[in-house]
């Protein structure tokens, strides 16, 4: 009898271990929703609107992937994560994709065993201070109290910056952007430091944004991008090429307004391949022919998303800068759809 129980348990063990390694794409299809990790709230990147619907630049990546895979941009389960919980959530399989202004670094890619599928925002770390302090340079911040989100690359950059400039500082560790905002506005810290885009987004939600300045120094490179787990290259490819499709669509002038018309067939074979009227790119990636078309229709191409959530007409008010297409002197460069 004991032998039977032992064999039975062995079987269960084998099954459970086997199930853990199944393909993410199948899991997502079976579930019918994409579990997407986002921030706990950062205006412009990922924040719930007045009706509780998540929206923002990172959220749009989740919706595009859901549209490509599940044919429904709304079929996303958003999982708010903090700087500390995000990697555990992804590694444990709680989320399928993490789109939470996360910096691509060597150790995250290799030591933490994640796969960054690209860069959706080229950023750098900056400092924000109240205007009345009269500080004009980050080099004047010796002795200051600095609010910093824990578990981020900015935390390490901050330590390095003050160390190399031989300055003392007092870190105030904070879990979320909302907490940091509250601490900063209560003057519990003199300075708030995070990615410059995050500073602009945070400042946009202040009552008097004009009372705060973002110092000119950018002390790091922060390429922010979506990421997936190591070990499932098919799923990583889907996320990577969905992002590339959004970027390529802007380059080729495919917008949410003209996409229906263009998908009738155009003179440009690259657009045709992107939209699935020519070739079999969709089949190669394990999806149907119109996957990229749906991803672009979910919210528009990269440029449209940028304008809607971060651009100069929004409260965040960011210029394209490094995030312009390579044809306009920026760094965005989608590999060919061929």
């Amino acid at each position: 009898m004991n032998k039977t129980a032992f064999l039975g348990a062995l079987t269960v063990t084998g099954l459970a271990a086997g199930a853990a390694a199944a393909a993410t794409l199948d899991d997502v299809r079976d579930r019918g929703t994409l579990n997407c990790g986002v921030s706990t709230g950062l205006t412009g990147f990922s924040a719930p609107d007045a009706n509780g619907n998540w929206e923002g630049f990172d959220v749009a990546v989740c919706r595009a992937v859901a549209a490509a895979v599940l044919e429904d941009p709304e079929a996303v389960e958003f999982v708010p994560t903090t700087g500390q919980t995000r990697f555990t959530a992804l590694a444990s399989g709680e989320i399928d994709l993490l789109a939470r202004n996360t910096t691509w670094t060597f150790s995250r890619d290799n030591d933490l065993k994640f796969e960054f599928v690209g860069v959706n925002y080229y950023d750098g770390q900056g400092f924000m201070v109240p205007k009345e302090l009269g500080v004009t340079s980050a080099k004047d911040l010796g002795g200051a109290t600095v609010c910093i989100q824990t578990g981020t690359t900015t935390e390490l950059n901050l330590a390095d910056f003050f160390r190399t400039n031989n300055m003392e500082y007092e870190p105030v560790p904070i879990e979320t952007n909302a907490e940091a905002q509250q601490q900063y506005l209560a003057d519990a810290c003199d300075v708030y430091t995070t990615d410059a885009s995050g500073l602009a987004a945070t400042r946009a939600s202040f009552e008097n944004p004009g009372d705060h300045v973002i110092l000119p120094e950018i002390i790091s490179k922060e390429p922010l991008g979506p990421l997936v787990r190591h070990g499932d290259n098919e799923w990583g490819d889907i996320a990577r090429w969905t992002l590339n499709a959004l970027i390529a669509a802007e380059e080729y002038g495919v917008t949410s307004a003209n996409i229906e018309e263009l998908s009738q067939g155009t003179q440009n074979p690259e657009v045709n391949r992107l939209l699935g009227t020519e070739g079999n790119l969709g089949e190669m990636i394990g999806l149907d022919a119109e996957w990229a078309k749906r991803a672009i229709m979910a919210g528009g191409n990269y440029g449209e998303l940028f304008e809607r959530y971060l651009g100069e007409s929004t409260p965040v008010g960011l210029a394209r800068g490094l995030n312009a297409q390579w044809t306009d002197g920026g760094l965005l460069y989608a590999p060919p759809f061929r």
Binding site: G83, F87, T88, A91, S107, D111, L112, T150, G151, L156
Partner: peptide, 14 residues
């Protein structure tokens, strides 16, 4: 916060 928070987060050794 140190061992169970930042260290785990930076090294991925949950």
């Amino acid at each position: 916060s140190t061992l169970g928070g930042i260290t785990i987060n930076q090294t991925g050794r949950e």
